[in-house]
């Protein structure tokens, strides 16, 4: 059902584009995504089931993080049609992209009357829809996330990555930001006690947890997963070629990814090209921040990226958490082998 709606919409979009292209008038190009917010249960590697809220493309499963959204090269406008299947209002913001906001405040009679609930317009609970648009999108790596009761909804999982390149295989206007492979590494945390309280309706003014002031995450995720030994590495291109690591932090705490045995070039912050690139082996990835790091592996084999904040646990178990392996292919390998679609841990290509 959703799928059909989506296909229809896309057809309309392309038809409009085609029309403008053929008619020779100035082209307003743009990309449209249909996102759904919903809930699901996930099984952590230590056997604990946690209720999550996530985004998914219409017709597909909702996931944490949500799908990586791409604004294609040459497009500068983004439209997101959000359908909210959660029991609470949800909205969508993209920090770093200038945009007008239409905040929603708690109404009189509400315990939080007069305080902002959503930083911009909401999609109503239970299937409500809302369309969000951004224009003149600049190149960069961004987090999109809910702008409603962020202290709860973001830790519940309502976030994902958005990327927009300046040119094909070039992140920013500076030619030095060209790359062969890019990898999204989105960091986040889960405090299961908050998730349980939200699930049972015990979070709120009269519940067992009334605010987020006490925050003790015990699951530390990259692209939605806590590391497990033996986990398949992420293909990272061929030795000697440039890899763009897109670091995003949707967690509430700072993490410091370290590229083991390597030095990279930090080229951006929050989707802004840095005035001067810096050679670093770490990225100080504060809560909500994004940073792009260019890496040119000198040798084939695995590269470990681990959190120097040392959130390397899964619940009470060690050897987990925010650690990920990249795999650099040797030179003689045919590009087709590593470029072939492989399901990564986002559950997508």
């Amino acid at each position: 059902m959703n799928k059909i709606i989506k296909r229809d919409r896309m057809t309309v979009v392309w038809a409009v584009l085609l029309l403008t292209l053929t008619s020779g008038t100035p082209v307003v190009r743009g990309v449209t995504y249909d996102l759904v917010a919903g809930e699901f249960d996930t099984l952590m590697p230590d056997g604990v089931t946690v209720r999550m809220w996530g985004f998914g493309l219409s017709g597909q499963a909702v996931t944490v993080p949500g799908p990586v959204l791409t604004v294609p090269v040459g497009d500068h406008n983004l439209t997101i049609n959000l359908t909210n299947n959660l029991p609470v209002p949800v909205s969508l913001v993209i920090p770093g992209l200038p945009s007008a906001l239409t905040p929603v405040y708690h109404q009189a009679g509400d315990p939080y009357a007069g305080r902002v609930r959503s930083l911009t317009a909401e999609a109503a609970p239970g299937g409500g829809q809302r369309t969000y648009t951004w224009t003149d999108i600049r190149p960069g790596t961004f987090v999109y996330h809910s702008g409603t009761q962020m202290q709860i909804q973001i830790q519940m999982g309502l976030y994902g990555a958005l990327k927009h390149d300046f040119a094909a295989s070039q992140a920013y206007a500076d030619p030095a930001t060209a790359y062969q492979t890019d990898i999204v590494l989105l960091y986040s945390e889960v405090d299961p006690s908050v998730h349980a309280a939200v699930q049972s309706g015990e979070y709120g003014p009269s519940g067992t947890i009334t605010s987020t002031v006490s925050y003790w995450p015990s699951y530390f995720l990259i692209n939605g997963e806590s590391y497990t030994p033996g986990q398949a590495p992420i293909p990272a291109g061929v030795v000697g070629q440039k890899v763009l690591l897109r670091f995003l932090n949707a967690g509430l705490r700072t993490h410091v990814p370290i590229i083991h045995n390597h030095i990279g070039k930090l080229i951006s912050e929050d989707g802004n090209l840095l005035p001067f690139f810096r050679d670093q082996y770490e990225v100080m990835l504060a809560a909500g921040k994004t940073s792009d790091l260019l890496l040119t592996p000198a040798a084939a084999g695995p590269i470990t990226v681990y959190d120097r904040k040392l959130d390397l646990t899964t619940g009470m178990e060690s050897s987990g958490g925010m650690l990920v392996k990249l795999d650099v292919a040797p030179l003689q390998t045919q590009p087709g082998l590593w470029k072939k679609p492989i399901r990564n841990r986002l559950g997508r290509v």
Binding site: V116, Q155, S211
Partner: peptide, 11 residues
């Protein structure tokens, strides 16, 4: 975001 609270009070 956990500091978007006034002690035990949300928002």
């Amino acid at each position: 975001l956990n500091f978007l609270s006034n002690d035990a009070e949300d928002y």
